[in-house]
């Protein structure tokens, strides 16, 4: 399985945290809250589209509302493949951090 990039991992984690209400705006707000930085729509939707094309995410359209100019929300959720990719990413992170933890963080 292809290793997830940092952005892909972040987006997948945000979707998982917000399910079943994970749509673009909510994901952006969640990421701003966690990272302290604003995320443009491009930096959210482009990875979302890529992840869906790779089968790691699935999406469906919600109801349209006048507040959104009659446009509907697109809700995302993790597929089984996406969940497995996240687990693999976590396993890798844990292994890498464990190796560093033995050495500690003091220089010299």
């Amino acid at each position: 399985m292809k290793i997830l990039s940092r952005t892909e991992e972040t987006i997948l984690l945000a979707v998982r945290a917000l399910e079943p209400e994970a749509y673009g705006l909510a994901i952006g707000a969640h990421l701003k809250k966690v990272t302290g930085k604003s995320w443009s729509v491009g930096s959210i939707y482009i990875p979302l589209e890529r992840l869906e094309q790779r089968g790691l995410l699935a999406s469906h359209e919600g109801e349209s509302s006048p507040q959104r100019g009659g446009r509907s929300k697109r809700f995302f959720k993790l597929s089984l493949k996406g969940l497995e990719a996240l687990m693999e990413a976590k396993r890798l992170q844990d292994a890498l951090w464990a190796a560093v933890a033995k050495k500690g963080f003091s220089l010299g």
Partner: peptide, 18 residues
Amino acid sequence: LPDFSRDAILGDMEETFA
């Protein structure tokens, strides 16, 4: 915008605008 998410993005933008 890509066809795939055009409506969703424009909707998100309009919601934030409001």
